[in-house]
């Protein structure tokens, strides 16, 4: 009986550590998205501050390509929308992983208590 529970615990622990790894990855991804959004925000503000006839270039590979200010602004806004959507998705993902972690932790605690009971009996 004890061995069975220990085996179960081992399995649960492995699952938990896997989810924790995923969780850390998801959080790191979200942080990256956050910083991208912030950068885009700053760029948008800067573009809006520019005069209408200001020259704007975009770095594509090693060359600077001239861009229309209006186009550039629209592009940045579109990208911000996309990143926001991605952040929402990442948030959901993180939330789901958190729930999974909690459930596993509870299971583990239960198993621990069972194990202790058995030990006391024995």
């Amino acid at each position: 009986m004890t061995e069975e529970i220990q085996k179960k615990m081992q399995k649960e622990l492995e699952l938990l550590s896997g989810i924790q790894k995923d969780y850390r990855k998801a959080v790191a991804q979200k942080q990256q998205l956050d910083s991208q959004l912030n950068e885009n925000k700053a760029v948008k503000e800067e573009l809006l501050l520019l005069k209408k006839d200001a020259e704007v270039y975009k770095l594509i590979g090693p060359v600077l390509v001239k861009q229309d200010l209006e186009d550039a602004t629209q592009n940045v806004i579109k990208r911000m929308e996309y990143i926001s959507k991605e952040i929402k998705r990442a948030d959901d993902h993180i939330f789901a992983l958190e729930n999974k972690q909690e459930a596993l932790q509870e299971n583990l605690n239960k198993l621990k208590i069972d194990l202790n009971k058995l030990k006391i009996k024995a």
Binding site: Q36, E39, V43, E46, L47, A54, E55, Y57, I60, V76
Partner: peptide, 13 residues
């Protein structure tokens, strides 16, 4: 001068 305003965009100022 050209200024890197982020995300690959450069603006002349």
């Amino acid at each position: 001068v050209m200024i890197d305003i982020g995300t690959g965009y450069y603006a002349q100022k």
